[in-house]
């Protein structure tokens, strides 16, 4: 994990599994970076739960609209990691 990355894909899939389970027939360990969350079996509530835990455990605040627009793991990781970088710069 680079110093500029708060969480990576394996960490995100771990959180998704822990918070919202795993849809049958979906391989979360496969190439899912650009697969939309709905296809992975995760609805907005599942993401609300995951995002809530990321904010809580890392003490960061994420922009609600940006989170809502993030439809894939890559997009969500981008929202999380750029928020973390912005906070570090501000600090």
């Amino acid at each position: 994990m680079s110093v500029h990355t708060l969480i990576d894909l394996p960490e995100l899939t771990r959180l998704l599994r822990e918070c919202a389970g795993e849809e049958e027939g979906v391989d979360l360990d496969g190439d899912v970076l650009d697969t939309v969350f709905m296809e992975l079996g995760y609805d907005s509530l599942a993401l609300l739960q995951v995002v809530g835990i990321i904010q809580r455990d890392h003490g960061i605040e994420l922009d609600e609209d940006a989170v809502a627009e993030a439809e894939t793991p890559r997009a969500l990781l981008d929202v999380v990691n750029s928020a973390a970088r912005a906070e570090r710069i501000a600090a």
């Binding site: 599994r17 918070c19 919202a20 389970g21 849809e23 049958e24 509530l45 739960q49």
Partner: peptide, 8 residues
Amino acid sequence: IPSRLLPQ
């Protein structure tokens, strides 16, 4: 129960 439904 499918794992997706366990946390909820």
